[in-house]
């Protein structure tokens, strides 16, 4: 068995407050081996970005990260700047939702990529240049050699996102974290990028963390799915299994909320009523209790559910499921 690249156990990201610390990511665990993929889904504010940022050690100053966070068997917590240098942007790279934030508007595309290449590997200008052309091509940018001299402002949104992806690929990462990297792109470009991510996994063995709130897109990306709600993991398993047989009331609600590629016209969508709880408002009970159609009063408002097996490698954190299985769901 291959050892995991990334092993996370009971990871907690919290913010100090006048009372108890506010938990934005609350006891998340998973492991990733080379070539594997984990899709993280959940609505905005559920802690997806903070989870990703803490893996890369770029969480906000005020955030406190606790738990186990190991990269190739060594902890990533409390590393010095010098210890991060060979890792961040090199072994572990991240693509953000907004490509403009990742790119420097004053430097050409080629210059930015060559800088990253040469920061992590000793090589000549010419070697760095061909590497830049290579990664731009891999990221699906048409005519990469002509684009080296372009400034970010001369590119369309979709092209800019591909440059950001090329930048993330340029040092040859072993783990790529894509945080809503395709959310604002056209379907056709989105599909191209998903294909590219498949190739990186199968051909280069790159491990992938893909954050999205689109469960159909999660299915296209494939691998494991982690559904988060208010910072807590609520359901986990292979993407296909979870989508074919969702067992947490929140996952089921999400699936009913969105029209699919096949929904017929105006079949009523059933949005989840209400809103996600504010940071720190969950307390001791089950995180989804205020919006849950199958809540068990007296239990869900008092205790946080643990994991229940729903099938091989499919787990659900729900009191109702633990008590009544699939019969208890709506």
């Amino acid at each position: 068995m291959t050892a995991p690249l990334l092993a996370i156990e009971d990871l907690v990201v919290s913010f100090p407050s006048n009372h108890a610390p506010l938990h934005a990511v609350d006891r998340v665990s998973f492991a990733l081996k080379p070539g594997e993929s984990l899709v993280i889904a959940g609505e905005s504010g559920s802690g997806k970005s903070l989870l990703c940022r803490s893996i890369l050690g770029v969480e906000p100053e005020t955030a406190k990260v606790a738990g186990r966070l190991d990269w190739k068997g060594k902890s990533l917590l409390n590393l010095s700047v010098a210890q991060w240098r060979p890792l961040r942007g090199a072994e572990i790279a991240m693509i953000f939702q907004d490509p403009t934030a990742a790119l420097n508007p004053l430097l050409t595309v080629g210059r930015q990529i060559m800088d990253v290449v040469r920061a992590h590997r000793k090589c000549s200008r010419n070697e760095a240049r061909s590497r830049a052309i290579e990664v731009l091509g891999t990221a699906g940018l048409p005519e990469p050699e002509h684009r080296l001299t372009s400034y970010p402002s001369e590119l369309s949104g979709g092209m800019r996102q591909r440059v950001a992806i090329a930048l993330a690929l340029s040092a040859g990462p072993e783990l790529l974290i894509a945080d809503e990297a395709t959310t604002n792109l056209d379907v056709s470009i989105q599909a191209q990028i998903v294909t590219l991510l498949h190739d990186l996994r199968s051909k280069l063995g790159v491990a992938l963390i893909f954050v999205t709130h689109d469960l159909d897109l999660a299915a296209e990306v494939g691998g494991e799915l982690l559904v988060m709600y208010a910072g807590q993991p609520v359901e986990m398993g292979p993407v296909d299994t979870v989508l074919a047989d969702p067992c947490h009331p929140y996952t089921r609600g999400l699936l009913r909320s969105a029209p699919t590629a096949r929904s017929s016209r105006r079949t009523p969508l059933r949005p989840i009523p209400g809103q996600a709880p504010k940071l720190g408002a969950v307390g001791d009970g089950a995180p989804f209790r205020d919006r849950c159609p199958v809540l068990i009063s007296g239990l869900c408002d008092r205790s946080r559910p643990g994991w229940t097996e729903a099938g091989p490698s499919h787990r659900v954190a729900c009191h109702r499921f633990e008590q009544d299985g699939r019969d208890g769901l709506t």
């Binding site: 599909a191 998903v194 159909d216 993407v239 296909d240 590629a261 096949r262």
Partner: peptide
């Protein structure tokens, strides 16, 4: 190019 959970499965 529409993401489609059934198709992907």
């Amino acid at each position: 190019a529409i993401p489609d959970r059934d198709h992907a499965a």
